[in-house]
Design a binder for these strands. Sequence first.
DNA 1: GCATGATCATGC
DNA 2: GCATGATCATGC
Length: 448
Amino acid sequence: MSEDSLPYDKYSIDSIVEYAGKLRGHTLREMTDAGELRSTKVQRGIYGNAIEEYYFKYKPNSNPEPDFSEADLELKVTPMKKVRGNKLVAKERLVISKIDYMTVVNEDFEHSHMMQKMKNVLLITYLWEKGVDQLDYKILSTELWRIPKEDLPQIRHDWETVVNKVRSGHAEDISGSDTQYLEACTKAAHGTDRTDQPYSSVRAKPRAWALKASYMTAIENGLIQRRQRIERSAAERDMDLVELVRERFKPYFGLTEEELRARFGLSKSKNLCARITNRILGGDDGTEIDELVKAGAKPKTIRLQANGRPKESVSFPAFDYYKLLDTDFDASDFYGYLQQKYLFVLYEKDGGEYRLRDVIMWQMPESDFPEAKSCYDQMRRNVRNGRADISVKSTENHCCHVRPHGRDSSDTKPQPYGPPVVKKCFWLNAGYVAEEIAKARRAKRPAC
DNA sequence: GCATGATCATGC
DNA sequence: GCATGATCATGC
């Protein structure tokens, strides 16, 4: 894979961290094609390497540069495990870098190699479980982490304690128990390995800087809890918002399309319901619901048949065949549409008419993105073969399909390797939308 | 003039 | 009843 097709901007910490965030709650099997990764025997670091290679798409190396050197960002992938029921603890210390006894004695703490390494850390934790295939480890958190200010004095003290032992010619006496948060842990291929130190002829065990497991337990749980708070408050905001919007719709619930049309003095058209929605949201004074705009939620009309299935699939704007061929899914308009929040305005069939019934907020679950991507990629292949006339059928993809979307069959767009083809767009499958609406409604009214 | 949001029409 | 192709009024 060429460098400029990386799924993130390697010069931007924000971009890398955001991309990493998509891993949260998922496994490597779900998020990568690391299918051939085998966990036959214990190979230390193999999991972290797999994330680098299969998710971030670069070859792991052990050079002293930061992992994301252009962004000056260090990647650390580390396991947690469950103890005593559900308590999460760090399974291991977090090893930072090898200690070079010969040079560390000339460093000062602030500018030390250790501190450089810890400047910007992308900390990814996963749940280690005995007997579980590595591909199925759940990723617990992905966070940008820097040593907290309040911990710096202790870490500085720990660092000085270790370095002073080397300075006094006693590197061989260093012990992990000397220090609180930061330790010098042994780091050797064989227990008998020894290395030189500057102020003594006694050879000492090679060691590496590491943050102790007990310290990492506190750090990692703190990050997980902080993320939970963020997500909870976002969910609460959404809940408030949908209640606010529902209040606005309430006076019109139960009315038929025709009654609403007359109420607002609108003409008949295929997008009548969309215009009704605009009127309701706009209110009498024409002001929009700011919160809805801020939340980026786009209204979509859904008319449900008596069986609860939408009468129609949900359309998006038409796409350009050239642009489709040029653009990866992750950078596509379609991906943008799928990341949006939607306000589904639900009408239900009642006899021969549709009545306005409810509004729900919907966003495509991330777990469905791969399926949507496969629809996108399939259509892309058609265009590459000069066959933009062939669509992706709704029977071929669980989430979405491709269908014409022009004024009529003569409303065409050019394609790169074939004759012009009628304009088309992506659609959400009616059946898929039915499932998602059922899910949302179950969540709203839990089973009694 | 045409993109948009959506429904209509047809055939199986 | 569903999948798919075709089409339409609005509004910027």
